[in-house]
């Protein structure tokens, strides 16, 4: 351990009103704003520049709004429990602070579980683009969205591009009118008629690429926050014993980061799901 005393490690500086760590975390958050700023810029540029029909008119056509609403509530709750943990430390109640911290951690975990179900759902949902229109359910269509049946041959990925090779044929159950699944009759589409086939993963369209990149990066921030919270759940007691003030400050800084992650989601939710 170095023995150099760093000024304003605990004492707020009169100019900024913050101790070093808090000022540092705010600066870091400023850089994070620019990081997500670039991604929002990507979203705006690609969407404004897209030809009509390439982007869904409304995120709910593809994404699951009720689940995302639930997740928003979960994340907001985790934010309030985080700040409660800090408030408890300010009142010198270490025990209840650790309980609030644990609830925060569990909320974050719940958020990721919900996200996992949202993601896997997309990877099992397919779209087939056709070379020529064909009749499905009484309409001439150029593309079919739906789920592949169990009899449909397994899709193989191209080694060169990573995309699915065009299979010999697929059997697909088309979606209902409003994205509800599995109402129509399964259709068999020959490989010769298929222009492109993809699941609703990142490579499906610029919209889903943006969705997966933005929520994925946000998810990584959640994981990062969980690691830090877990660390304080485990060794918080030792730090608190050594210096209650230092521990309170660290939880405050963790909280600032955590609220920022919440804040990003508050913007991601309407932008990706509701527009």
């Amino acid at each position: 351990m170095s023995t150099t005393v760093i000024p304003h490690d605990l004492e707020p500086h009169p100019l900024t009103g913050m101790y070093n760590g808090k000022f540092g975390i705010w600066l870091f958050l400023a850089s994070e704003i620019m990081l997500f700023g670039a991604l929002f810029s990507t979203y705006v540029l690609l969407r404004v520049g897209a030809p009509p029909g390439q982007w869904p008119a409304h995120g709910s056509e593809i994404l699951n709004v009720p689940l995302a609403t639930l997740n928003t509530a979960v994340l907001i709750s985790s934010s309030v429990t985080m700040v409660m943990s800090w408030a408890a430390l300010k009142m010198k109640k270490f025990g209840s602070a650790q309980v609030w911290l644990t609830i925060t951690f569990l909320c974050a975990g719940a958020f990721l579980v919900v996200k996992y179900f949202e993601y896997t759902d997309k990877f099992h949902h397919y779209q087939v683009w056709l070379n020529d229109p064909m009749p499905v359910g009484g309409h001439e269509v150029t593309t079919i969205k739906g789920h592949l049946t169990a009899d449909s041959p397994k899709l193989e990925c191209s080694e060169k591009t990573g995309a699915f090779n065009i299979p010999e044929y697929v059997i697909i159950t088309p979606d209902g009118d409003h994205g509800s699944s599995g109402h129509g009759e399964a259709v068999r589409v020959e490989g010769s008629k298929i222009k492109r086939i993809s699941n609703f993963g990142p490579r499906h369209s610029p919209y889903l690429a943006t969705y997966f990149t933005m929520t994925g990066l946000h998810g990584l921030h959640i994981v990062g926050g969980m690691v830090v919270i877990l660390y304080f759940m485990l060794v918080g007691g030792a730090i608190w014993k050594r210096s209650p003030e230092k521990y309170t400050n660290r939880i405050e800084c963790t909280g600032l980061y955590w609220h920022f992650v919440d804040l990003v989601w508050i913007f991601l939710f309407p932008v990706l799901y509701l527009l």
Partner: peptide, 23 residues
């Protein structure tokens, strides 16, 4: 303030290269 957008761009290019997106 200027480096994070390149980090974002780097992530997007990695997605294009590894996940087959078309940013």
């Amino acid at each position: 303030l200027a480096f994070p957008p390149l980090e974002a761009a780097g992530v997007l290019q990695l997605m294009d290269r590894l996940a087959g997106t078309s940013f």
